[in-house]
Measured scan of single mutants.
Amino acid sequence: MDALKSAGRALIRSPSLAKQSWGGGGRHRKLPENWTDTRETLLEGMLFSLKYLGMTLVEQPKGEELSAAAIKRIVATAKASGKKLQKVTLKVSPRGIILTDNLTNQLIENVSIYRISYCTADKMHDKVFAYIAQSQHNQSLECHAFLCTKRKMAQAVTLTVAQAFKVAFEFWQVSKEEKEKRDKASQEGGDVLGARQDCTPPLKSLVATGNLLDLEETAKAPLSTVSANTTNMDEVPRPQALSGSSVVWELDDGLDEAFSRLAQSRTNPQVLDTGLTAQDMHYAQCLSPVDWDKPDSSGTEQDDLFSF
Score class of each variant (00 low, 15 high):
V111Q: 13
A130P: 04
L255S: 06
N34C: 03
G82T: 05
M124T: 03
S67I: 02
V236L: 09
L251Q: 15
K152Q: 04
S243G: 14
G275S: 02
A162K: 04
V92Q: 10
Q285N: 07
Q134I: 15
L213G: 11
M124W: 06
L206C: 14
L85D: 13
V167E: 01
D191H: 09
K51L: 15
E44L: 15
P61R: 14
I71C: 09
E33R: 13
K204Y: 04
I132M: 14
S245K: 07
T77M: 14
V248Y: 01
K127M: 08
E33T: 09
G63T: 14
K5S: 00
A76P: 11
L43M: 14
D126W: 01
E59N: 03
G96R: 15
D273P: 08
I113W: 00
A284G: 10
V226R: 06
A185G: 05
E142P: 13
K91D: 11
Y52P: 05
Q270G: 08
S224M: 03
I12M: 06
K179G: 01
S117L: 06
S135F: 15
E188I: 08
A3K: 07
A164I: 13
D293F: 03
G194L: 01
A156Y: 05
P202T: 08
T77Y: 08
Q60N: 09
A7P: 08
L193N: 03
H282Y: 13
V271H: 02
N268R: 09
Q155P: 00
K123I: 12
M124S: 13
A78Q: 05
A80K: 11
A219Y: 10
A7F: 13
E177L: 12
D280W: 01
K72C: 11
N138D: 14
R73Q: 13
E59Q: 12
L141C: 10
L276T: 02
P201Y: 07
E301C: 08
L90W: 02
Q60V: 11
K204V: 14
L223P: 07
K51W: 06
K181T: 03
P239V: 03
S260K: 00
A121S: 07
Q197D: 01
N229E: 03
L287S: 00
L85S: 10
N110V: 01
L141Y: 01
W22L: 02
G54Q: 13
I74Y: 09
A162F: 03
P237Q: 08
V247F: 01
A70R: 03
Y118T: 14
A154D: 03
L42R: 15
G299V: 02
C286I: 07
E59L: 10
V167K: 01
T277S: 02
G63F: 08
S186R: 06
K62P: 07
N268I: 01
W249A: 14
A185Q: 03
P289S: 07
S307C: 00
H28D: 10
G25L: 10
Q187Y: 05
P289V: 07
M55P: 06
K30S: 04
Q302Y: 04
D252E: 05
K5G: 13
V157M: 00
E109P: 03
D291H: 05
A68G: 07
L212C: 08
S245H: 02
A195I: 05
D2W: 05
E250D: 04
L255Y: 09
R13N: 15
F165Y: 13
S16W: 13
A121T: 08
P202S: 12
P15N: 08
L85Q: 14
T160V: 12
T89W: 12
T230E: 01
N229G: 06
D253L: 06
K91W: 01
G26K: 06
S16F: 00
D2K: 07
A121D: 10
L213Q: 11
R9A: 14
S117V: 15
F146Q: 03
K181Y: 13
K150S: 04
A78N: 11
S246K: 00
A7E: 15
D303G: 08
T267K: 06
A228P: 06
R266N: 01
I132D: 07
D198S: 03
D37R: 06
S135H: 09
A278D: 09
I74F: 10
S205N: 10
Q136L: 11
A263N: 13
L50K: 05
P239C: 06
P61H: 08
Y118L: 02
G189V: 05
K19Y: 14
Q163A: 02
D2L: 06
H28E: 05
L276Y: 02
R115I: 07
K152P: 00
V290Y: 07
P202Q: 02
V161Y: 04
M281Q: 04
L213E: 00
Y118N: 09
A70N: 04
S93L: 13
V161S: 02
G25V: 08
G24M: 08
T56P: 07
A70E: 08
V192T: 08
T36C: 12
L203I: 09
R151Y: 03
N102C: 01
V247N: 00
S245E: 07
A156M: 14
G26Y: 09
T209M: 08
G275Y: 05
S117M: 12
S135R: 15
P295F: 10
L66F: 03
D198I: 07
A121Y: 05
S81C: 02
S224F: 10
A278K: 08
L4A: 04
A68H: 12
S260Y: 00
R238P: 02
F48R: 10
